[in-house]
Amino acid sequence: LRLEVKLGQGCFGEVWMGTWNGTTRVAIKTLKPGTMSPEAFLQEAQVMKKLRHEKLVQLYAVVSEEPIYIVTEYMSKGSLLDFLKGETGKYLRLPQLVDMAAQIASGMAYVERMNYVHRDLRAANILVGENLVCKVADFGLARLIEDNEYTARQGAKFPIKWTAPEAALYGRFTIKSDVWSFGILLTELTTKGRVPYPGMVNREVLDQVERGYRMPCPPECPESLHDLMCQCWRKEPEERPTFEYLQAFL
């Protein structure tokens, strides 16, 4: 395994491009020591290896001592969030954005069929390849993070704006909380990567959403798509659509 080009840095580690087995181009995620327990990670990795779908980033291998390494397929255009905010983002029109959403829903419909939960679905965790191919990455890892700023769910590192209220408040993460996050991801797509709930801080978002506030229809977004977002944001988790439905609708 060779680490060649550093692609990015996040709160919990770095991402590199490299070569595996001398020939395969891969992405390598390294986790800061202390982010998660190697034992817990190894268990999760076994499950992650079983998830194989064309719209999920394929896991190739893991190094399960500290520092933990995760070796996955390489996606040339990086994260969907950076892609939307970058040069190419300007030229993306609604049909392409909807197609990308459908690809993500397709990957998540598979996660749904496998009775698995992602827990951290957002544009930053979707990767883009050639020809606007989108794949879901980092599934299941969020559960293992041991950082206090994260586990408190009120901490600075927790993605509260993407998280369903029952998950943020009571830790009830299910495929239905993933559906909520998918609704937020749809706003990221239609606004080219704007942060959700602009002008609001995490605490406010939690309070307002509890009181029934939902983001309005983004500019140039059809009402039918906003309606779909609002279905994803129904207060009762069981009233939210399935990913199978979302995939078919898109």
Score class of each variant (00 low, 15 high):
201 V>D: 14
30 T>P: 00
83 F>R: 07
207 D>S: 05
80 L>K: 00
77 K>Q: 10
71 V>Q: 01
157 K>R: 09
79 S>Q: 06
57 V>S: 12
218 P>C: 14
215 M>H: 04
225 L>S: 06
213 Y>K: 05
146 E>Q: 08
38 P>F: 11
115 N>M: 11
85 K>Y: 13
58 Q>L: 12
217 C>K: 12
238 E>R: 13
244 E>W: 13
45 A>N: 02
122 R>L: 00
208 Q>V: 14
111 V>M: 15
16 W>L: 15
153 R>F: 04
222 P>Q: 06
165 P>I: 14
184 I>R: 00
43 Q>P: 02
48 M>I: 00
54 E>S: 11
52 R>Y: 09
82 D>C: 09
140 G>E: 01
164 A>Y: 02
100 M>V: 09
153 R>K: 10
172 R>P: 06
17 M>A: 11
159 P>F: 02
85 K>R: 14
107 G>K: 00
25 R>H: 12
64 S>N: 05
237 P>M: 13
57 V>C: 10
176 K>A: 14
64 S>L: 03
203 R>P: 12
60 Y>V: 14
77 K>W: 12
129 G>F: 04
31 L>P: 15
139 F>K: 02
162 W>V: 01
38 P>K: 11
76 S>N: 10
101 A>P: 04
144 L>Y: 13
98 V>L: 08
135 K>S: 13
51 L>E: 02
93 R>N: 07
133 V>Q: 13
58 Q>I: 08
31 L>R: 15
238 E>P: 13
92 L>G: 05
172 R>D: 01
185 L>V: 08
46 Q>E: 13
163 T>W: 00
102 A>I: 08
32 K>W: 02
151 T>S: 07
117 V>Q: 00
210 E>R: 08
94 L>C: 07
16 W>I: 15
82 D>N: 08
24 T>R: 14
129 G>A: 08
153 R>S: 14
169 L>N: 10
230 C>M: 09
79 S>Y: 01
10 G>W: 01
104 I>R: 01
140 G>Q: 01
134 C>R: 00
172 R>T: 09
20 W>Q: 14
32 K>M: 07
67 P>N: 05
209 V>N: 06
47 V>C: 09
182 F>P: 00
174 T>M: 15
71 V>Y: 00
230 C>L: 10
181 S>R: 01
15 V>A: 06
166 E>Y: 03
243 F>H: 12
130 E>V: 12
15 V>P: 02
109 A>H: 13
106 S>M: 11
65 E>S: 09
98 V>Q: 07
139 F>A: 01
108 M>Q: 06
33 P>V: 09
105 A>P: 02
25 R>K: 13
179 V>T: 13
43 Q>F: 14
139 F>L: 02
223 E>A: 12
95 P>K: 10
135 K>E: 08
61 A>N: 09
126 I>V: 07
241 P>A: 05
219 P>A: 12
61 A>I: 05
164 A>N: 01
134 C>Q: 04
12 F>N: 03
21 N>E: 14
19 T>I: 12
154 Q>N: 07
